[in-house]
Design a protein around this nucleic acid. Structure first.
Lengths: 194, 194
DNA sequence: AAGGGACCGTACCGATCGGTACGACCGGCG
DNA sequence: CGCCGGTCGTACCGATCGGTACGGTCCCTT
């Protein structure tokens, strides 16, 4: 998350870290640039010297938040190259673990989707593209399983993951994490040709 | 949704309808009181004569949005009194049908949760209580099935429903609706003692 | 020492936010 | 008619929004 960027000044780096934290904890719309500047210990112009606008900052934020998901998918593929079922379980477990971490407040991209209903908004455009890419990667993984309709299964798993992000915010992180693993297991099981 | 309230003046009723529509389509935070007033064809004071504040209006909105869910549960119970499995399918189908309706933009209460991360905010307090109540009702319904752990099953179904609301906004309403029905069926099936 | 470029914060901008003071208007009743 | 309670919109309020003009400070170079 604290993705270094050599082009950023020291103040810019502090802004970046603070913004990522605030955007996630309070939501993008709720976090004002004045608040970001104050909690970064910098002046407002330092924000605009390193980022085009608040929207530009939010755009960088959602793009950065999407990186870990891709990393997990590739890591799982590398961890058990010949066992797609284990790869899938690996990914789901990773997500469940992150849900269990203190301060988890759902998927940053899904939250951004709700915060920006306008599909033309640059943040929303980016999120839609990133989410589409992620669903495709997940579907590819699922496709390696002996199932008849991997596209449907992938979509259901994605739905479960998004649901877990929401129920974590409404109900309980622990219940959501365990229910996600259990439900994913059961759905995958029901899809396996035996 | 256009819940009549005799205490509301004609202008207040127009405000109420417009606010419900705008809050759902654009999100609560995005919809300003000036915009609500303008699209209602009334002056701003007419809003504050009928509602305590914008938060008060938002509070009424989320409470009103929670009503249909409870109605569906009771309707399903009444429709097939002796077949809990059919009742459950009835409810899920109802939700899937609503997802398929044009203009569907996810569960209003889940969206409000994302829009108000502060758990102390009155809107958020109300949403949490309403969602807890709904989960309880759903769990009660599931408890009538011959399953070992109805609490877990109920939570998973709730997770699926919330997930469908999100994936509808990101991906496709049709896929979400059909995936919801299919996934719910498979999970319930895997829980049934046979 | 003198100059210059990189980086920074103070103070401000117009626009918009939620909310309100005030007076015009209208129907019913004396 | 004259009054009166209820309902309404215009015009405004201070606060906050995202964004910027400007001048200061530091350090490296010559």
């Amino acid at each position: 998350m604290a993705a270094q960027d050599a082009r950023r000044s020291p103040a810019g780096q502090r802004v970046w870290e603070t913004a990522c934290d605030l955007f996630y904890r309070e939501g993008i719309r709720s976090a004002g640039v004045a608040e970001i500047a104050e909690r970064s210990g910098v002046g407002k112009p330092s924000i605009y010297r390193n980022f085009e606008s608040k929207d530009g900052l939010a755009l960088a934020y959602v793009k950065a938040k999407a990186v870990p998901s891709r990393v997990w998918l590739e890591a799982a593929r590398a961890a058990c190259p010949d066992d797609p079922r284990a790869q899938l379980r690996h990914v789901i477990t990773e997500i469940a673990d992150q849900i269990s971490e203190p301060g988890y407040r759902g998927c940053a991209l899904a939250n951004a989707t709700v915060e920006f209903p306008d599909r033309e908004h640059p943040v929303r455009v980016a999120v839609d593209a990133l989410k589409a890419e992620y669903l495709e990667l997940l579907t590819e993984l699922v496709s390696q399983l002996p199932v008849r309709d991997p596209r449907s299964l992938g979509y259901m798993l994605q739905m479960l993951v998004e649901g877990a992000g929401i129920t974590t915010q409404i109900y309980s992180a622990e219940r959501s994490a365990s229910a996600l693993k259990e439900a994913a297991d059961r759905i995958v099981e029901s899809y396996l040709e035996r």
